[in-house]
């Protein structure tokens, strides 16, 4: 091939390379959720409760002075039961297990729900000590999910337990 023709060939091939790189660097656009959708993110990290027993004075007396803890607690943490309802319908239900080989770590969850934007009655119930029946934490609220917005369901005992954040 003559030199000018080879140069033209190179220009075409370099051009094709640039178009390929330039196009797939940003196109096609990716839409993870529709325009009219919102997200609920359910995310918690919480230590399940455990049943502790108060040591009697006789028991404490028999123990070395430096080990006289008033409560005797098992290492293992309770599973945590969690339910989420939306407008009275069950959206999600699970039992979270403690992490760790001795089941003494936190129980965690992370879930993402895609919903059509709008107003919903959101109810979350949680029991962090399954020896006891029912739910010791309940949060119920009418929430308005705007398009593209994220509502987070989280738990923090210092903030009163279950809470929603938008």
């Amino acid at each position: 091939m003559s030199k000018p023709a080879a140069i033209v060939g190179q220009i075409i091939l370099y051009g094709a390379f640039a178009v390929f790189i330039g196009y797939f660097a940003t196109f096609p656009r990716y839409r993870q959720i529709p325009d009219d959708a919102a997200l609920i993110k359910l995310s918690m990290s919480h230590l399940g409760d455990r049943e502790c027993r108060k040591r009697t004075a006789e028991e404490l007396e028999k123990m070395p002075r430096n080990m006289r803890a008033p409560l005797e607690c098992p290492r293992e943490r309770s599973d945590i039961k969690l339910e989420v309802d939306l407008d009275g319908e069950k959206l999600f239900s699970t039992v979270m297990h403690p992490t760790g080989l001795s089941k003494d770590g936190v129980s965690t969850i992370y879930k993402r729900f895609e919903l059509k934007a709008g107003s919903y009655r959101l109810t979350v119930r949680m029991n962090d000590n399954l020896i006891k029946p029912g739910f010791n934490y309940i949060k119920e609220e009418q929430v308005t999910l705007k398009p593209g917005r994220v509502l987070v369901i989280d738990f923090n005992p210092d903030k009163g337990g279950l809470f929603f954040r938008q």
Binding site: G22, T26, F27, Y30, Q32, G148
Partner: peptide
């Protein structure tokens, strides 16, 4: 390519929002 189609940032991240459409780098 950099002159014709410069790499630009999208809108700033906002974790309260979920980006509905992104200019994905497919590579």
């Amino acid at each position: 390519l950099a002159l014709i189609k410069p790499a630009l940032s999208d809108a700033p991240a906002n974790l309260a929002l979920s980006p509905t459409q992104v200019r994905l780098d497919w590579f």
